[in-house]
Design a protein around this nucleic acid. Sequence first.
DNA 1: ACAAAAGTGTAGCCATGGCTTCATTTTCGC
DNA 2: GCGAAAATGAAGCCATGGCTACACTTTTGT
Lengths: 143, 143
Amino acid sequence: MAAEDDTALGDTVERFSQARSAQSQALLEDYTEMIDDLLREVGEARITDIARHMGVTHPTATKAVSRLKREGLAQSRPYRGVFLTEAGLAMAERVRARHRVVVDLLVAVGVPAEAAELDAEGIEHYVSDTTLAAFEAFLAARR
Amino acid sequence: MAAEDDTALGDTVERFSQARSAQSQALLEDYTEMIDDLLREVGEARITDIARHMGVTHPTATKAVSRLKREGLAQSRPYRGVFLTEAGLAMAERVRARHRVVVDLLVAVGVPAEAAELDAEGIEHYVSDTTLAAFEAFLAARR
DNA sequence: ACAAAAGTGTAGCCATGGCTTCATTTTCGC
DNA sequence: GCGAAAATGAAGCCATGGCTACACTTTTGT
Protein backbone atom coordinates (compact mmCIF):
# COMPACT_ATOMS: atom_id res chain seq x y z
CA MET A 1 0.00 0.00 0.00
CA ALA A 2 2.42 2.61 1.19
CA ALA A 3 -0.02 5.35 0.46
CA GLU A 4 -1.93 6.60 3.47
CA ASP A 5 0.55 5.84 6.20
CA ASP A 6 1.22 9.42 7.12
CA THR A 7 1.25 8.59 10.78
CA ALA A 8 4.88 8.82 11.63
CA LEU A 9 5.84 11.33 8.98
CA GLY A 10 3.74 14.15 10.33
CA ASP A 11 2.98 17.36 8.55
CA THR A 12 6.02 17.31 6.39
CA VAL A 13 4.34 19.21 3.62
CA GLU A 14 3.83 22.29 5.76
CA ARG A 15 7.37 22.19 7.02
CA PHE A 16 8.92 21.98 3.61
CA SER A 17 6.57 24.42 1.98
CA GLN A 18 7.29 26.93 4.65
CA ALA A 19 11.02 26.46 4.36
CA ARG A 20 10.79 26.94 0.60
CA SER A 21 8.73 30.10 0.73
CA ALA A 22 11.18 31.57 3.19
CA GLN A 23 13.85 31.43 0.53
CA SER A 24 12.34 34.04 -1.71
CA GLN A 25 12.10 36.38 1.23
CA ALA A 26 15.71 35.76 2.15
CA LEU A 27 17.10 37.52 -0.88
CA LEU A 28 14.96 40.57 -0.32
CA GLU A 29 16.17 40.71 3.23
CA ASP A 30 19.80 40.34 2.31
CA TYR A 31 19.73 43.08 -0.29
CA THR A 32 17.71 45.37 1.91
CA GLU A 33 20.15 44.91 4.75
CA MET A 34 23.09 45.50 2.48
CA ILE A 35 21.62 48.67 1.07
CA ASP A 36 20.94 49.90 4.56
CA ASP A 37 24.50 49.08 5.59
CA LEU A 38 25.86 51.02 2.66
CA LEU A 39 23.62 53.99 3.28
CA ARG A 40 24.74 54.10 6.89
CA GLU A 41 28.40 53.57 6.39
CA VAL A 42 29.14 55.02 3.01
CA GLY A 43 26.27 57.46 2.68
CA GLU A 44 24.94 56.03 -0.53
CA ALA A 45 24.12 52.68 -2.06
CA ARG A 46 25.14 52.41 -5.65
CA ILE A 47 24.45 49.44 -7.82
CA THR A 48 28.09 48.62 -8.25
CA ASP A 49 28.75 48.73 -4.54
CA ILE A 50 25.75 46.58 -3.78
CA ALA A 51 26.85 44.09 -6.40
CA ARG A 52 30.41 43.96 -5.12
CA HIS A 53 29.42 43.43 -1.53
CA MET A 54 26.83 40.83 -2.39
CA GLY A 55 29.30 38.99 -4.57
CA VAL A 56 27.26 39.24 -7.74
CA THR A 57 27.60 41.09 -11.01
CA HIS A 58 25.97 44.44 -11.42
CA PRO A 59 23.13 43.28 -13.66
CA THR A 60 22.17 40.81 -10.98
CA ALA A 61 22.12 43.58 -8.42
CA THR A 62 20.03 45.70 -10.77
CA LYS A 63 17.50 42.92 -11.06
CA ALA A 64 17.35 42.53 -7.32
CA VAL A 65 16.85 46.24 -6.84
CA SER A 66 14.07 46.15 -9.40
CA ARG A 67 12.39 43.54 -7.34
CA LEU A 68 12.85 45.60 -4.19
CA LYS A 69 11.21 48.52 -5.96
CA ARG A 70 8.40 46.31 -7.14
CA GLU A 71 7.85 45.21 -3.56
CA GLY A 72 7.82 48.78 -2.35
CA LEU A 73 10.99 48.42 -0.33
CA ALA A 74 13.29 50.67 -2.30
CA GLN A 75 13.39 53.59 -4.69
CA SER A 76 15.93 54.64 -7.26
CA ARG A 77 16.38 56.85 -10.25
CA PRO A 78 18.67 56.10 -13.17
CA TYR A 79 22.30 56.79 -12.37
CA ARG A 80 21.34 57.80 -8.86
CA GLY A 81 21.84 55.62 -5.86
CA VAL A 82 19.28 53.33 -4.32
CA PHE A 83 17.25 54.37 -1.29
CA LEU A 84 14.98 52.49 1.05
CA THR A 85 11.35 53.36 1.58
CA GLU A 86 9.80 53.40 5.00
CA ALA A 87 8.94 49.74 4.56
CA GLY A 88 12.47 49.01 3.43
CA LEU A 89 13.98 50.76 6.42
CA ALA A 90 11.66 48.88 8.72
CA MET A 91 12.67 45.60 7.17
CA ALA A 92 16.34 46.47 7.39
CA GLU A 93 15.97 47.32 11.05
CA ARG A 94 14.13 44.11 11.75
CA VAL A 95 16.66 42.03 9.85
CA ARG A 96 19.57 43.75 11.52
CA ALA A 97 18.15 43.15 14.98
CA ARG A 98 17.40 39.52 14.22
CA HIS A 99 20.85 38.97 12.81
CA ARG A 100 22.41 40.33 15.97
CA VAL A 101 20.26 38.15 18.18
CA VAL A 102 21.08 35.05 16.17
CA VAL A 103 24.80 35.71 16.29
CA ASP A 104 24.64 36.45 20.00
CA LEU A 105 22.74 33.28 20.67
CA LEU A 106 25.15 31.16 18.68
CA VAL A 107 28.05 32.65 20.56
CA ALA A 108 26.23 32.18 23.85
CA VAL A 109 25.90 28.45 23.28
CA GLY A 110 29.57 28.20 22.41
CA VAL A 111 29.88 28.69 18.68
CA PRO A 112 33.12 30.44 17.73
CA ALA A 113 32.49 34.04 16.71
CA GLU A 114 33.62 33.58 13.15
CA ALA A 115 31.48 30.53 12.51
CA ALA A 116 28.58 32.23 14.23
CA GLU A 117 28.81 35.17 11.88
CA LEU A 118 29.06 32.93 8.84
CA ASP A 119 26.25 30.57 9.75
CA ALA A 120 23.96 33.31 10.99
CA GLU A 121 23.78 34.65 7.48
CA GLY A 122 21.93 31.55 6.41
CA ILE A 123 20.18 30.71 9.64
CA GLU A 124 18.59 34.06 10.37
CA HIS A 125 16.13 33.84 7.54
CA TYR A 126 14.55 30.79 9.06
CA VAL A 127 14.19 32.06 12.59
CA SER A 128 10.51 32.66 13.27
CA ASP A 129 9.24 35.34 15.61
CA THR A 130 8.52 32.70 18.19
CA THR A 131 12.04 31.36 18.04
CA LEU A 132 13.50 34.84 18.00
CA ALA A 133 11.61 35.69 21.16
CA ALA A 134 12.93 32.55 22.80
CA PHE A 135 16.47 33.49 21.79
CA GLU A 136 16.05 36.93 23.31
CA ALA A 137 14.68 35.50 26.53
CA PHE A 138 17.57 33.06 26.73
CA LEU A 139 20.11 35.81 26.21
CA ALA A 140 18.41 38.08 28.73
CA ALA A 141 18.47 35.32 31.35
CA ARG A 142 22.14 34.65 30.72
CA ARG A 143 23.19 38.23 30.95
CA MET B 1 33.52 58.30 -3.45
CA ALA B 2 31.79 55.48 -1.77
CA ALA B 3 33.87 52.91 -3.49
CA GLU B 4 36.66 51.39 -1.45
CA ASP B 5 35.30 51.81 2.04
CA ASP B 6 35.05 48.15 2.84
CA THR B 7 36.29 48.69 6.34
CA ALA B 8 33.18 48.24 8.38
CA LEU B 9 31.42 45.91 5.99
CA GLY B 10 33.86 43.05 6.29
CA ASP B 11 33.91 40.01 4.08
CA THR B 12 30.32 40.17 3.11
CA VAL B 13 30.96 38.53 -0.22
CA GLU B 14 32.11 35.29 1.33
CA ARG B 15 29.20 35.21 3.71
CA PHE B 16 26.59 35.68 1.06
CA SER B 17 28.22 33.44 -1.48
CA GLN B 18 28.42 30.67 1.06
CA ALA B 19 24.81 31.12 2.09
CA ARG B 20 23.74 30.94 -1.54
CA SER B 21 25.68 27.82 -2.40
CA ALA B 22 24.19 26.12 0.64
CA GLN B 23 20.78 26.42 -0.92
CA SER B 24 21.39 24.00 -3.75
CA GLN B 25 22.58 21.44 -1.24
CA ALA B 26 19.51 21.95 0.91
CA LEU B 27 17.16 20.42 -1.62
CA LEU B 28 19.31 17.35 -2.04
CA GLU B 29 19.37 16.91 1.69
CA ASP B 30 15.64 17.32 2.07
CA TYR B 31 14.78 14.81 -0.60
CA THR B 32 17.38 12.36 0.60
CA GLU B 33 16.07 12.56 4.12
CA MET B 34 12.50 12.14 2.94
CA ILE B 35 13.35 9.10 0.88
CA ASP B 36 15.15 7.59 3.82
CA ASP B 37 12.17 8.29 6.05
CA LEU B 38 9.85 6.60 3.61
CA LEU B 39 12.10 3.60 3.20
CA ARG B 40 12.26 3.17 6.94
CA GLU B 41 8.66 3.73 7.76
CA VAL B 42 6.80 2.53 4.72
CA GLY B 43 9.33 0.18 3.24
CA GLU B 44 9.52 1.88 -0.10
CA ALA B 45 9.85 5.34 -1.55
CA ARG B 46 7.67 5.90 -4.54
CA ILE B 47 7.68 9.05 -6.59
CA THR B 48 4.11 9.90 -5.69
CA ASP B 49 4.74 9.45 -1.99
CA ILE B 50 7.87 11.54 -2.12
CA ALA B 51 6.00 14.25 -4.00
CA ARG B 52 3.10 14.23 -1.60
CA HIS B 53 5.26 14.47 1.48
CA MET B 54 7.44 17.16 0.00
CA GLY B 55 4.42 19.16 -1.05
CA VAL B 56 5.27 19.20 -4.74
CA THR B 57 3.82 17.61 -7.85
CA HIS B 58 5.15 14.33 -9.08
CA PRO B 59 7.11 15.68 -12.03
CA THR B 60 8.94 17.95 -9.64
CA ALA B 61 9.80 14.98 -7.47
CA THR B 62 10.93 13.09 -10.54
CA LYS B 63 13.28 15.91 -11.44
CA ALA B 64 14.68 15.97 -7.95
CA VAL B 65 15.24 12.23 -7.96
CA SER B 66 16.98 12.56 -11.31
CA ARG B 67 19.31 15.00 -9.72
CA LEU B 68 19.90 12.67 -6.78
CA LYS B 69 20.79 9.93 -9.24
CA ARG B 70 23.09 12.26 -11.11
CA GLU B 71 24.84 13.05 -7.85
CA GLY B 72 25.16 9.38 -7.01
CA LEU B 73 22.89 9.53 -4.01
CA ALA B 74 20.00 7.45 -5.27
CA GLN B 75 19.06 4.75 -7.73
CA SER B 76 15.79 3.88 -9.38
CA ARG B 77 14.33 1.94 -12.24
CA PRO B 78 11.20 2.96 -14.13
CA TYR B 79 8.04 2.17 -12.23
CA ARG B 80 10.06 0.86 -9.31
CA GLY B 81 10.66 2.77 -6.15
CA VAL B 82 13.64 4.93 -5.35
CA PHE B 83 16.55 3.65 -3.29
CA LEU B 84 19.50 5.34 -1.71
CA THR B 85 23.09 4.46 -2.50
CA GLU B 86 25.71 4.14 0.19
CA ALA B 87 26.43 7.83 -0.22
CA GLY B 88 22.75 8.62 -0.03
CA LEU B 89 22.30 6.63 3.14
CA ALA B 90 25.30 8.33 4.65
CA MET B 91 23.90 11.74 3.79
CA ALA B 92 20.50 10.81 5.19
CA GLU B 93 22.08 9.67 8.41
CA ARG B 94 24.14 12.82 8.69
CA VAL B 95 21.15 15.02 7.94
CA ARG B 96 18.94 13.17 10.35
CA ALA B 97 21.47 13.47 13.15
CA ARG B 98 22.00 17.16 12.47
CA HIS B 99 18.29 17.78 12.40
CA ARG B 100 17.87 16.16 15.77
CA VAL B 101 20.71 18.19 17.28
CA VAL B 102 19.29 21.41 15.92
CA VAL B 103 15.83 20.71 17.26
CA ASP B 104 17.26 19.68 20.62
CA LEU B 105 19.32 22.82 20.85
CA LEU B 106 16.41 25.04 19.97
CA VAL B 107 14.31 23.37 22.63
CA ALA B 108 17.17 23.60 25.10
CA VAL B 109 17.32 27.37 24.76
CA GLY B 110 13.59 27.65 25.24
CA VAL B 111 12.00 27.45 21.81
CA PRO B 112 8.60 25.74 21.92
CA ALA B 113 8.79 22.25 20.45
CA GLU B 114 6.50 22.96 17.55
CA ALA B 115 8.34 26.09 16.46
CA ALA B 116 11.64 24.28 16.93
CA GLU B 117 10.58 21.54 14.57
CA LEU B 118 9.33 23.99 12.00
CA ASP B 119 12.31 26.33 12.08
CA ALA B 120 14.85 23.54 12.22
CA GLU B 121 13.78 22.48 8.77
CA GLY B 122 15.19 25.70 7.37
CA ILE B 123 17.96 26.29 9.86
CA GLU B 124 19.66 22.91 9.72
CA HIS B 125 21.00 23.39 6.25
CA TYR B 126 23.07 26.33 7.35
CA VAL B 127 24.59 24.79 10.44
CA SER B 128 28.26 24.19 9.74
CA ASP B 129 30.21 21.35 11.29
CA THR B 130 31.81 23.79 13.66
CA THR B 131 28.48 25.08 14.83
CA LEU B 132 27.05 21.60 15.04
CA ALA B 133 29.90 20.52 17.27
CA ALA B 134 29.27 23.50 19.50
CA PHE B 135 25.58 22.59 19.71
CA GLU B 136 26.46 19.04 20.72
CA ALA B 137 28.86 20.26 23.35
CA PHE B 138 26.28 22.62 24.73
CA LEU B 139 23.67 19.88 24.92
CA ALA B 140 26.11 17.45 26.52
CA ALA B 141 27.00 20.00 29.18
CA ARG B 142 23.38 20.66 29.91
CA ARG B 143 22.47 17.05 30.26
C1' DA C 1 -9.46 -11.08 -17.75
C1' DC C 2 -9.89 -6.80 -18.55
C1' DA C 3 -11.46 -2.14 -17.80
C1' DA C 4 -10.72 1.60 -14.71
C1' DA C 5 -7.80 3.77 -11.54
C1' DA C 6 -3.51 4.94 -10.00
C1' DG C 7 1.24 5.72 -10.72
C1' DT C 8 4.99 7.16 -13.65
C1' DG C 9 7.33 9.31 -17.37
C1' DT C 10 8.06 13.15 -20.72
C1' DA C 11 7.59 17.53 -22.76
C1' DG C 12 7.24 22.10 -22.30
C1' DC C 13 6.03 26.48 -19.77
C1' DC C 14 7.10 30.06 -16.11
C1' DA C 15 9.77 32.77 -12.60
C1' DT C 16 13.97 33.43 -10.27
C1' DG C 17 18.64 34.49 -9.80
C1' DG C 18 22.76 33.96 -11.69
C1' DC C 19 25.74 35.31 -15.94
C1' DT C 20 27.97 37.82 -20.34
C1' DT C 21 27.86 41.31 -23.76
C1' DC C 22 27.19 45.65 -25.48
C1' DA C 23 25.33 50.44 -25.54
C1' DT C 24 24.85 54.53 -22.97
C1' DT C 25 25.59 57.92 -19.45
C1' DT C 26 28.34 59.98 -15.70
C1' DT C 27 32.26 61.17 -13.64
C1' DC C 28 37.10 62.11 -13.35
C1' DG C 29 41.70 63.43 -14.42
C1' DC C 30 44.50 66.17 -16.81
C1' DG D 1 36.48 71.15 -21.31
C1' DC D 2 37.14 66.92 -23.09
C1' DG D 3 38.59 62.23 -23.59
C1' DA D 4 39.03 58.05 -20.95
C1' DA D 5 37.40 55.36 -17.27
C1' DA D 6 33.78 53.90 -14.54
C1' DA D 7 29.02 53.13 -13.63
C1' DT D 8 24.57 51.98 -15.23
C1' DG D 9 21.15 50.13 -18.17
C1' DA D 10 19.20 46.70 -21.43
C1' DA D 11 19.04 42.43 -23.82
C1' DG D 12 19.46 37.80 -23.84
C1' DC D 13 21.45 33.19 -22.18
C1' DC D 14 21.60 29.32 -18.66
C1' DA D 15 20.23 26.28 -14.68
C1' DT D 16 17.06 25.36 -11.13
C1' DG D 17 12.79 24.23 -9.20
C1' DG D 18 8.25 24.87 -9.54
C1' DC D 19 3.97 23.87 -12.59
C1' DT D 20 0.31 21.65 -16.24
C1' DA D 21 -0.86 18.59 -19.80
C1' DC D 22 -0.70 14.43 -21.85
C1' DA D 23 0.97 9.63 -22.85
C1' DC D 24 1.99 5.29 -21.18
C1' DT D 25 2.54 1.53 -17.56
C1' DT D 26 1.07 -1.03 -13.67
C1' DT D 27 -2.13 -2.28 -10.34
C1' DT D 28 -6.56 -3.23 -8.83
C1' DG D 29 -11.31 -4.55 -8.49
C1' DT D 30 -15.02 -7.03 -10.11
